[in-house]
Design a binder for these strands. Structure first.
Lengths: 341, 341
DNA sequence: TCTATTTCCGATAACGTTTCCGGTAACGTT
DNA sequence: AACGTTACCGGAAACGTTATCGGAAATAGA
């Protein structure tokens, strides 16, 4: 029963002109009589004609679609970034196709293939936490697919990258913990193969060194963004003979898991244990105690990534990869002690 | 510099066979010599050949893509549903294209056009809060596009619908407030043109009636899902001469706005004012006090919607629209008083 | 009046697939 | 020896556009 959609053929026949003329009218080409153009447009509107972008894409060899793949989007972080991407992409006449890898390398590979097969004009990508083999990505790049990486960035891949100053963010967060009197500061860390994890760890380490706080390896727990692991790690930390008096979490979801665990153990924040996160979302403001966190310009990340990608799409030959590092700042809330003066 | 991607032509020439043969090999058709098939597949793999789905879509007149449009996805509600959609869609060999309307009718229209133009095989849609004209949707349906509606559902449109038992959810939430001693219960309501808003309002009203609690019109505030309005409404309620002793919010984001407002006014929850929401997300568990809320089977909504859509796609002629109403239950947390015995 | 230019339009070949319709060769059956 | 079957393959049309090319008519320039 599916009624077929009208094509330029239908319009051409009804108006007794050629499909060339119809095509010209629809994509307002210069050499056409204003009257016939109007006739075509009127009929098109009357038939509720919608151009078949598939045919156009095949012919023009471009889809005007940019793909976005993120590990997940149930936390607000990636959705907010996608918002930023969509704004600049739509403004430039591009559509956005969103996929999620679910933190699975296999799905990432599969989705990437699908993107390549659908001939997206470019891709904005945050890799999986388990992505340690980059052949599928490099293969796509070899095919000429422009890719911009963000958030989860890795040295082995080349291409434009958008990241934030993870090192500085971690440094100032840990410094703040030290300055408010904490001495045994644990770190719920991210994956070490990713720049984001390494930089935050380094910021943590250097802040400790700079303030002559001894580094203890058993206080560094790798949670690696996997759900539930932060809770287990926190539990281990809390039952140590010499309990830490502060936690610095690699991101907010990790911090919130820790917060719940601490609360369940009947300890108070920040009196027994202070807690700082790395902001993925505005939600940290709503938990109690509200979360001290490093904030990053989320919206800007998406917009910038899209801009870089569009630039590369439009001039692929003279394009030189750029790495942008956006600034981070600390927002002090209730989960850390007030600065003593 | 963009290297062109290999086509079945390249394979055919290198192997000295026709493109028909290559095509047969790639989509393992029956009548082909196993040896030539192997040769084709080997070369395809070696060239890293990826079929051009655009050409396939044009030829086969279907894209194997289902579109999803939601009002927003920075809150966890819609992303969770999309997760459910993706699972069943991917399992059935479909890709999912996600768009958001940003609660704007204009963007909804534009995106819908884009979906129609890209010839998605079907659409799962939650309309905007300001969508009161349905011509664009009906027009798409006339073109034969199968559409399944969810969450934001409206009587004027026909097609399969997936919703939850809003009436019952609201009823039991308000009943619980009454049974824990609340007498002046305000409602932060949703838009009245949407079934979801009406049903929750009716549940609220009927619960009051059933327990002989007088209905006061000035306690019903229409926040209509717009950011910030719940806060203003709550503020108005709190400064009334005769302050309500409970709030029932149409959803959790609304409830959380109210919670913050109440907290800022120095009032305590649930002692001064009890608060209940309608669960869009698991986040209600993390705020303090944790939020009493009506829970709905979020994941199931997406999966069911996708199933209904796929069924309609595969047998459009003998398809009869179905409306599914999923069950809701109440989770009692700290934002309402404990049941008195 | 004749040529040169402009204005508008049609025919047609692509784009990369799938699919229908044949066609050849090898084989088995009478 | 003639025929029907089978197994495999190629040709070519089609999907709905865009873009190139050339041609006819109208206009301009001399």
């Amino acid at each position: 029963m599916r009624s077929k959609q009208p094509t330029i053929w239908d319009i051409a026949i009804k108006l007794n002109v050629s499909i060339s003329t119809v095509s010209r009218a629809l994509r307002n080409a210069p050499d056409i009589n204003p009257e016939t153009k109007k006739a075509v447009l009127d009929l098109a509107h009357q038939l509720d004609y919608q151009p078949n972008t598939i045919a156009t894409s095949l012919r023009k060899n471009k889809t005007d679609i940019i793909g976005v793949m993120v590990p997940e989007f149930v936390h607000a972080f990636f959705p907010s970034i996608i918002l930023g991407i969509q704004e600049v992409a739509n403004a430039a006449g591009y559509k956005v196709m969103v996929m999620q890898s679910g933190e699975s390398l296999e799905i990432e590979k599969h989705n990437l293939q699908a993107m390549v097969s659908s001939r997206v004009d470019g891709l904005i990508l945050a890799i999986t936490r388990e992505t340690n083999d980059y052949e599928h990505i490099i293969s796509a790049q070899r095919k000429g697919l422009p890719i911009v990486f963000f958030n989860r960035v890795v040295d082995e891949l080349q291409g434009s990258k958008v990241m934030v100053d993870d090192y500085k963010g971690a440094y100032i967060a840990v410094q703040h913990l030290i300055q408010t009197g904490c001495r045994r500061i644990a770190h719920l860390a991210g994956p070490e193969n990713m720049t984001i994890g390494r930089n935050r760890l380094n910021g943590y380490l250097d802040a400790l060194k700079a303030h002559q706080v001894p580094i203890e390896d058993e206080l560094i727990m790798h949670c690696d963004f996997v759900d539930g692991r932060a809770r287990a790690c926190t539990q281990r930390l809390l039952t140590m003979e010499n309990r830490p008096d502060a936690l610095f979490a690699v991101n907010d979801p990790t911090a919130i898991e820790a917060l719940i665990c601490i609360r369940e153990n009947g300890l108070s924040i920040p009196d027994d244990i202070a807690l700082a996160g790395f902001s993925n979302a505005p939600h940290g403001a709503f938990v109690t105690p509200s979360l001290t966190s490093v904030v990053q310009p989320i919206h800007e990340i998406g917009g910038l990534a899209a801009q870089l990608l569009l630039r590369q799409i439009k001039a692929p030959q003279q394009f030189i990869p750029e790495t942008h590092v956006l600034d981070t700042t600390l927002v002090i809330r209730q989960s850390t002690r007030a600065k003593p003066e």
